[in-house]
């Protein structure tokens, strides 16, 4: 491991911090767009952990997995935003608390 590189534990800790920033965003915000962006934050935290472990073990399976995560995140963003658009068109709200149409 080169000298200028921070220890791998710091990368993992950074990934954990970023993941829980995303968790706070998902729980505390009401705007569905910001909730989706927080989910993207969590995806990226997971990716950072995967890339770090790939570097730790000198094995690029982690890179492959992160690549798959990126595609899944793209699909998730597209579908999530489509749902937001449909919900807004239907009820003119932008608030996850108000979205109770499916409530039994």
């Amino acid at each position: 491991m080169t000298q200028w590189l921070a220890p791998m534990e710091s990368y993992i800790a950074l990934s954990a911090v970023m993941f829980f920033l995303g968790v706070v965003g998902v729980i505390a915000r009401r705007n569905p767009l910001i909730v989706l962006m927080s989910i993207e934050l969590m995806f990226n935290a997971a990716n950072l952990a995967l890339v770090t472990f790939a570097k730790l073990w000198a094995n690029n399976a982690g890179h492959i997995f992160a690549f798959l995560v990126v595609t899944v995140a793209a699909a998730e963003a597209a579908i999530g935003l489509a749902i937001v658009v449909v919900a807004f068109r239907r009820a003119q709200y932008v608030d996850v608390d108000e979205a109770s149409v499916l409530k039994g």
Partner: peptide, 15 residues
């Protein structure tokens, strides 16, 4: 910095 060149580019382009 973690030697993931392709993922860095993918991060910029896709995200």
């Amino acid at each position: 910095t973690l030697n993931a060149e392709f993922l860095a580019v993918i991060q910029l382009v896709v995200y």
